[in-house]
Design a protein around this nucleic acid. Structure first.
Lengths: 332, 332
DNA sequence: CCGATTTTTGCAACCGGTTGCAAATTGCCC
DNA sequence: GGGCAATTTGCAACCGGTTGCAAAAATCGG
């Protein structure tokens, strides 16, 4: 049904190898046969079958892109950047939606079946062990937005969540807030744990502060709103560092629903600096996470591993910085 | 390097065919050999190579998922539903990000090279001709959120945008608005054109109304905000039907920035009913687009075409309904 | 236990490409 | 034009599976 190598070879009057060679970079073909082949291919509308060739070359140019957060708008930005950057390098994203699944076994099997060249785990909530399962299956893998470690089991590209926690704490202290809250993402997410660690550490340096903390059940609007409503019912802090922007926006809506003002009554800050954080009716003060750099770094890393699969894994961190908008009172 | 059929066959002491057969549904193998093979496979950690088998079966179980809107949060919901529904059917989404590209040639070539079993074009802005290019290349294709036609060139699953325009017009009239605006998406998007058509048609029935219309340059927050700021500078209407929810939210922010109240000073309504429309600080009155049904319908359609590629294309439309929230004044 | 049927099995060809190798061709220089 | 090296070419085997077909084995009825 489809036009194959053989058809082109016949029409061009050459061997199948000749056709194959004209379509593979750096193979030895004379200008004359190349022209004949290209002509015939043009006539027949021939395009090489990428999967058939992968059988012998061992390269599919498929990259497994795994994520488990389809309810956080920043992931749309992340998918956008990932898919475009992969496409620019001639790689194809095979998307896996991991909602409600924490066992890597299925994903490993699936991506092995499709002989992907590499795997990108894009998630700040999945454990390092999840990513490690791909390495154990001998696939090149990068954990984007993953947890930092001195000697990680797999390549990690992301931010220093502990340092972000510190930065948030210092920011709130500098604004004169004394009763300070940490409204984290899910308690079992590595990012939440690390941020809380740094947050506590930096607050411990300053005397006379009251720190409270609690966790939303997910990185989502609803979870942030629900948790903030709960906090408001008791004795809320003066300002909260929220697990991320979408949680902040949920919290913001809760505060406004309660008839309180941000930042007049309660200060809020987030983390990510997603597009929406800059929207005029949100105007969230937040810590910018350089997702473009993280994604470019992740792809560079996975590409490098294609040639050298045994590169020793390391963590690559990019610096974050504060974006001042309107949800905290000004520095004193 | 990887464990193959041959390895399993050798260990199990059977032919390669026997191994192949134990892993293909409905093939004839005795219980005894099946057991032997499964044992050997278990020991070696064998999993069949999906791409190699696709070579003979002609089925890859890959589905090309094409989209061009990575700045509209509803597409995150759409990707979530698509990927999960595809996974549930054992299909794998190969994602193509079409940002800034309107020529289908590249996508067609790419998806042919990967022998995808089918293609889903998920976009309300791409033209029917775009989707048709896949059909011309003899691939099963469904245009989700595409334009209705009596006898379309490809299967279309979506909503009746003309009827949505009518519904919006009737809603605004019923609220007593007299000076009514249409703040559409990009003027060249088929969805925009159809909605305006229905909107005008329904308003033409009611006498004494003033209708104005303009277009945002994209379905995005910034575009909606910019366009509404422009409108506010002159002589704005009493209420606007916006191209979609994210445009509405941009418009909402513009109105609020101008110190005006919604719905007190200006009424707004959207279309889609994305998650965010229900957020407490947005609370957008909007027309619900049944994306889950559209997506399930699209996948059912593409699956049906796998068996019968020559099914005559038709448009499948799902009804929309109004979701009343807080951005329009109550009916009079 | 026999012969007829049904089920299971292995052989071999094939899917659409790639690639090592040896033979054929080309180009170059004298 | 001849000799030699460099380039190009086709053959054939292979990548990891599937499948039609005929032979072998199992099942069944009598």
């Amino acid at each position: 049904m489809n036009v194959t190598l053989k058809d082109v070879a016949k029409l061009a009057g050459v061997s199948r190898s000749a056709v194959s060679r004209t379509f593979t970079e750096g193979a030895s073909v004379s200008a004359k046969t190349r022209r004949k082949v290209e002509e015939a291919a043009e006539v027949l509308g021939y395009h090489p079958n990428a999967l058939a060739s992968s059988l012998t070359t061992g390269r599919t140019k498929l990259i497994g892109l795994i994520s488990n957060n389809f309810h956080n708008p920043i992931f749309l930005e992340i998918f956008d950047l990932f898919t475009r950057a992969l496409q620019n390098r001639g790689l194809r994203p095979l998307l896996i939606n991991l909602t409600d699944e924490t066992d890597p076994a299925n994903s490993v099997r699936l991506l092995r079946q499709y002989s992907v060249d590499g795997v990108i785990v894009a998630s700040s909530t999945l454990s390092p062990e999840f990513a490690k399962a791909f390495r154990d299956a001998r696939m090149p893998v990068v954990h984007s937005f993953g947890r930092f470690a001195e000697r990680p089991d797999v390549h990690v590209v992301g931010i220093d969540n502990v340092e972000c926690g510190r930065m948030a704490a210092r920011t709130l202290v500098a604004r004169g807030y004394r009763r300070i809250g940490f409204l984290g993402g899910p308690a079992d997410a590595t990012s939440t744990q690390d941020r809380l660690l740094g947050f506590r550490e930096a607050l411990a340096e300053a005397p006379g502060l009251a720190l409270s903390h609690s966790f939303a059940r997910a990185y989502s609007f609803d979870a942030g709103r629900a948790e903030m409503l709960r906090l408001l019912a008791a004795d809320p802090a003066e300002a909260y560092f929220c697990g991320d922007d979408v949680l902040s926006i949920g919290a913001l809506s809760a505060v406004q629903s309660a008839g309180l003002d941000v930042p007049g009554d309660i200060g809020l800050m987030g983390l990510n600096d997603m597009e929406m954080a800059g929207w005029a009716n949100i105007d969230l003060t937040t810590i910018h996470q350089p997702i473009r750099q993280i994604i470019d770094g992740s792809i560079a890393c996975v590409v490098a591993m294609l040639d050298d699969p045994d590169r020793v894994p390391e963590a690559q961190l990019f610096p974050c910085h504060l974006i001042e908008r309107g949800t905290l009172r000004p520095p004193i």
